[in-house]
Simulated scan of single mutants.
Amino acid sequence: MNPKIRIVNEEILSDNWYVLKKITYMSEARDGSWNSQSRESYDRGNGSTILLYNREQQTIILTRQFRIPTYVNGNETGLLIEACAGLLDKESAEDSIRRETEEETGYRITNVQKIGEAYMSPGSVTEILHFFVAEYSSNMKVGEGGGVKEEQENIEVLEYPFQQAIDMIQTGEIKDGKTIMLLQYAQINRLLDPVLRQQHILIAGPYRSGTGDNPDLIQRNIELMNDTALQVYEAGHLPVLGEWYALPLIEKAGSQQIGDDIFNRIFHPSSVRLLKHCDAVLRIGGPSQGADEMVNVARGMGKIVYSDIRDIPRIV
């Protein structure tokens, strides 16, 4: 206990819902003198709150319900957009937020992460609020949410794009303190950034283009693509060249020269087959009709297209 504070008297002013007390206490000043002060303290227990987020969809779950204190203080509708929250009710903070999440939103979450706790209105309310975040997905939805009818809760479940929710802080559509704190935590810590993963990247560049079928110039193009593939590998990904796959097949099939029927039957189609199993294409080098076609095919498939090795994220 703080030796510079002495509680003199506690008077209960109301216990109709929660407990409102008038507390008289003595505090020691810097000069050693003691002063008497009285303050009101509202004890409603401690609570927990959570931000549900979906990294793949870039969305978050919030709620909307009527809050009478806001209605009598400038909120024309009394409806407030906020993160799911509730009192602990003799539970641990984590057990409480799991229960509240299912009751209010209909999602039965698995892994929750505590990110901190805070006094939300320390001048008058005793409550400590425990803050959590958790990922959600459609297969976690086990009900419609909306709150507990017996407690006269009427809660609307909202799903917003994350960036829209951030913008709503600026527009004033979101004014709830705990919700702003959770959203800004997610923004600062880049909680919804896609998880970096290993990609299978097809290297597309000129093979014959601009060489006049000169073997030395063709080999130079191959070396450029091989050098690039090594950089892709060192960035933590799996590089592949159509040439690695097609040229041995072309030779085995009996091709006699570049551009003959066997070459044309295997060379470009091999790259297209590879592309179906790749996550991205890296376009390098100079003009090449074949490489440009691979880029167009990749875009048509919804693949990632990189135009510079520096654009590829490093994961090692």
Rank of each mutant, 00 (worst) to 15 (best):
M1E: 10
M1C: 08
P3E: 09
R6L: 13
I7P: 02
L13Q: 07
L13E: 08
S14G: 02
Y18N: 15
V19N: 06
L20P: 04
K21P: 04
K22M: 10
K22T: 11
K22L: 15
I23N: 09
M26S: 12
S27T: 14
S27E: 15
A29D: 05
D31R: 03
D31E: 04
G32N: 00
G32M: 00
G32Y: 01
W34L: 02
S36A: 12
D43Q: 08
D43C: 10
G47C: 15
S48W: 10
Y53T: 11
R55N: 05
Q58L: 02
Q58W: 01
I60N: 01
I60Q: 03
I61D: 00
Q65N: 12
V72L: 15
T77G: 05
G78F: 01
L79Q: 08
A83S: 11
A85F: 08
L87P: 01
D89E: 15
E91R: 15
S92I: 06
R98V: 05
E102N: 06
E104S: 01
T105K: 04
G106P: 00
Y107T: 03
Y107E: 04
Y107L: 05
V112G: 07
G116M: 02
E117G: 04
A118D: 14
M120F: 15
P122M: 09
I128G: 03
F132W: 07
V133Q: 05
A134K: 08
E135P: 02
S137C: 12
S138M: 08
M140Q: 09
M140N: 02
V142E: 09
G143Y: 06
G143V: 04
G147C: 07
Q152I: 13
E153K: 10
Q163N: 11
A165P: 03
A165I: 06
I166V: 14
D167E: 14
M168S: 01
Q170R: 14
D176F: 11
T179I: 13
I180P: 03
M181R: 11
M181S: 14
L183Y: 05
Q184Y: 11
R190N: 11
L191T: 03
V195C: 08
L196H: 11
R197F: 09
Q199S: 00
H200T: 15
I201T: 12
I203V: 14
P206Y: 10
Y207C: 04
Y207G: 02
Y207P: 01
R208I: 14
G210P: 01
G212V: 07
D213R: 14
N214R: 06
P215W: 11
D216N: 15
I218M: 10
R220T: 12
N221G: 07
N221D: 04
I222D: 03
N226E: 15
T228L: 10
Y233M: 12
A235C: 08
V240F: 00
V240N: 00
L241S: 11
L241Y: 07
E243D: 13
Y245F: 14
A246E: 03
L247V: 14
I250M: 12
G254N: 06
S255C: 01
S255G: 01
S255W: 00
S255F: 02
Q257T: 13
G259W: 04
D261Q: 08
I266N: 10
C278A: 12
D279M: 08
V281Y: 00
G285Y: 09
G286T: 05
G286A: 10
V297A: 05
R299F: 09
G300T: 02
M301V: 06
M301H: 04
G302K: 08
I304P: 01
I309T: 09
